[in-house]
Design a protein around this nucleic acid. Structure first.
Lengths: 111, 111
DNA sequence: CAGTATCCTGGACGATACTG
DNA sequence: CAGTATCGTCCAGGATACTG
C-alpha cells in the first residue's frame, strides 16, 4: 500500500491529527481555522522545520492537505482519510499487546 | 500512534496481508492453513530471513499473529486489525493523488 | 513568520554465512 | 526447513544556519 509510504513517515500522521478540526470546505478555499507553519511546528513539539516542510509538501501533493493564505488544513479528501484513521486509532485503543498494560489514548507522532 | 511504529516497518503490512486467509480460530490454536516461514518468505518475494524473523517476532509480541506447529497465522485480534486495514486500503483505492493516474490495487510491501 | 540549504549521524534494512 | 549471527550500506530525520 503506497499510502503507508506516506503515512509511515515520521510526523505525517501527527500532522494530519493536529489538523483535525482544520478542515477545508473544499479543496481550494480553506476555512479560517487553518494552522500556520509555526503553529504546527509548535504543536508537533519540535519537529525540525526541514522535516515539517517535507511532510507538508508530500501531504499536499497527495491531496490530503491544502495550503492557502491562512495556513494549512485538511482537504475534503483528507477529512475522509481522517475518518478511516480514527477507526484504526479506535482499534489501537482496544488493542492489548500481551504482557503490556492497555495503551493510553495517544496521538503522538513520535516513534 | 504506536501502532504505526509497528506497521510502518518494512514488510510488516505485507506479512499481515499475505496471512489474510490464514486466521486462527483462537489465539493459541492455529488452523491448518497456517503458512510456514519459507512460504511467507517466498510470498514476500525476497525479504531477507533476518528481517522476516524480526517482523514475525514483533507482530507476535503484539498479539497480531501467532505461531504454532503448522506455521504462522493471524490471531483473532489480528483479523480485526485486518478488517480496519482493509477499510484503509479501500480508501486508498478511491484516492486520487492529484496529477497522477488512479492507483492499481496493490498489496506490495515494497517502499 | 515561512520556509530553504547543508551537513551529520543512527539505525533499519539487506546480504550472507552459519547452526540445529 | 527454520531460523540466528554478523557486517556493511544507505538514507530519513535532526540540527543548524540562512534567505525573503
Amino acid at each position: 500500500m503506497a499510502l503507508l509510504d506516506l503515512l509511515g513517515r515520521r510526523w505525517a500522521l501527527r500532522v494530519i491529527w493536529e489538523l483535525r478540526g482544520d478542515t477545508a470546505l473544499n479543496d481550494t478555499a480553506l476555512n479560517d481555522t487553518a494552522s500556520t507553519f509555526r503553529e504546527l511546528q509548535a504543536r508537533c513539539g519540535g519537529v525540525s522545520s526541514s522535516v515539517l516542510a517535507d511532510r507538508l509538501r508530500e501531504l499536499s501533493e497527495a491531496g490530503i492537505i491544502g495550503h492557502s493564505e491562512g495556513g494549512y488544513a485538511l482537504t475534503a479528501q483528507g477529512a475522509t482519510l481522517l475518518a478511516r484513521l480514527a477507526a484504526l486509532d479506535e482499534w489501537a485503543a482496544t488493542w492489548q499487546p500481551p504482557g503490556r498494560p492497555p495503551e493510553e489514548p495517544d496521538a503522538s507522532g513520535g516513534r
